[in-house]
Amino acid sequence: MDLLLWRHAEAAEGSPDHSRELTERGHRQARRMAEWLHKNRPKKLRVLVSPTVRTRQTAAAFTQDFEIVPALAPDCGVADLIGATGWPDASGAVLIVGHQPGLGRLASLLLAGVEADWTIKKGALWWFTNRVRDDETQTVLRTVLPAELA
């Protein structure tokens, strides 16, 4: 399985939190990463998005074919993210467009084996895959890409 974590692009400050929209810079970040994803995406990619405006706008730069998942809201935990994706047993690939601190904590768990407060920059993408070697399931970090380098 491939698991891609894409933190929403830069959004305007304000309230209510769920209604915050991308800034012009955020739209540029989302478009750049979307272009990279179009060239490098895994096949059979399922796109799951938090219900916030900023995550939907980020995902829309890449595709209109995404699923809004309430369990991916800003206050979600790692268990919610894993449950929504089926990691590591689902087939194919899943892209989550979500939030900090949940995405960073999931990245930490996948790579270090414990949840920690790792930061994923706005608009950045982290791509993981899992494999089995000698009857041991391993997590492999394939890509970490900040929006400005996409």
Rank of each mutant, 00 (worst) to 15 (best):
M1D: 06
L3P: 03
L3K: 14
L5K: 11
W6S: 02
R7C: 01
A9M: 03
A12P: 00
E13K: 04
G14E: 04
S15C: 01
D17Y: 08
H18L: 07
S19W: 02
L22A: 06
L22S: 03
G26Q: 04
H27P: 01
H27S: 07
R31E: 08
R32I: 01
A34M: 05
W36R: 09
W36F: 12
N40T: 13
R41M: 10
K43D: 10
V47L: 05
V47E: 05
T55H: 05
R56W: 11
A59H: 13
A59K: 11
T63Q: 09
T63Y: 12
D65V: 05
F66G: 04
F66L: 07
E67Y: 10
I68E: 06
I68M: 08
A71W: 13
G77D: 09
G77T: 06
A79W: 07
D80A: 13
L81P: 00
A84N: 07
G86K: 10
G86M: 09
G86A: 09
W87G: 02
P88R: 13
G92C: 02
A93S: 14
V94I: 07
I96P: 01
V97L: 09
V97F: 08
P101R: 14
L103V: 11
L103K: 14
G104K: 15
A107F: 15
L111P: 02
L111M: 15
A116T: 03
D117I: 02
I120A: 08
K121D: 02
K122Y: 04
K122D: 01
G123M: 03
G123E: 00
A124V: 00
W126D: 00
W127F: 00
R133N: 02
T137M: 15
T139A: 10
V140F: 12
T143V: 14
V144S: 08
L145M: 14
A147K: 06
A147M: 03
A147Y: 10
E148R: 15
